[in-house]
């Protein structure tokens, strides 16, 4: 089966410092990939290379068979959905309006929303548990509710691949657990999910694959059970092997 993401020999550097070096990995349907690593190791940059937002890297990133550095934004938005770490707008869009914007690549720029678009938005609102907030302004939501609204927008894109950059940052434990359960459920239903996370403990809540990024472009990719072992994490983060932060 063709992988949804296939990264071959990807390298990227800011100036002289190589951030990502000759990286290769694949993500397929039903995978839940967690990207972990210390600050500045290139986690967010990697996601932007996968989405084609940054096109300067060497090597090839294929998403649904399309070259991410060459494919137009409209095509990529039908292949993958991306939730940035923080999105804001000065304008008071309602949650429903925001979620419906997830249909941009399918509805085009001109026509109104079809019943299919409305149904996709309703389904995404229900899936994320925020249907009751549909009429509220996104600027009036709590951080956790807003994060769920942007995940709902991504789900309304109806793609088979979902990428998230630190979806649980700044959230309380309840929202962290809810979002990880939601993402885990999506991957069990066949969606490929890749999320940048800061906490290994969260990665243990459903991820089956892990990409560990270290300094200087070093990386490890493999099964979660292997890479989430405390000794591997201690080495990656530069922590003592017996650090309580690494306990299961």
């Amino acid at each position: 089966m063709t992988p949804l993401v296939k990264v071959s020999g990807l390298s990227f550097s800011y100036g002289e410092d190589e951030l990502i070096s000759n990286m290769s990995f694949e993500v397929g349907s039903g995978d839940f990939l967690c990207v972990l690593g210390p600050n500045g190791s290139g986690k967010s940059t990697l996601l932007k290379l996968l989405t084609g937002f940054i096109k300067a890297g060497r090597g090839v990133v294929r998403v649904g068979g399309a070259d991410a550095s060459l494919a137009p934004a409209g095509l990529l938005a039908r292949l993958l959905a991306y939730v940035p770490s923080e999105t804001s707008t000065p304008y008071d869009f309602t949650v429903r309006e925001m979620v419906l914007l997830g249909r941009t690549a399918r509805a085009g720029f001109w026509r109104g929303y079809s019943s299919e678009d409305e149904a996709a938005a309703e389904s995404a609102l229900r899936e994320t548990g925020i249907a009751a907030l549909a009429g509220r302004s996104v600027n009036a939501l709590s951080s956790g509710e807003r994060q769920l609204a942007f995940i709902a927008q991504a789900l309304a894109q109806e793609t088979r691949l979902l990428l998230l950059d630190e979806p649980t940052s700044h959230l309380d434990l309840k929202y962290k657990a809810d979002i990880m359960a939601l993402l885990s459920g999506l991957s069990r239903r066949g969606m490929a999910v890749a999320a940048v996370l800061h906490e290994p403990a969260l990665a243990r809540l459903g991820c089956n694959k892990v990409l560990l990024l270290g300094r200087g472009g070093r990386y490890s990719f493999g099964p979660a059970v292997e890479l989430l072992a405390p000794p591997r994490l201690a080495e990656t983060y530069g922590l003592p092997a017996d650090s309580p932060l690494l306990d299961k």
């Binding site: 934004a73 959905a81 941009t104 509805a107 085009g108 001109w110 927008q153 894109q157």
Partner: peptide
């Protein structure tokens, strides 16, 4: 007006607009 949805996407920021399908 024929590109109203692209303008709404841009109102979320350039990065978000790109990921919604508007260059």
């Amino acid at each position: 007006f024929s590109r109203w949805r692209a303008l709404d996407a841009m109102a979320l920021g350039e990065e978000k607009a790109y990921h919604l399908g508007a260059d």
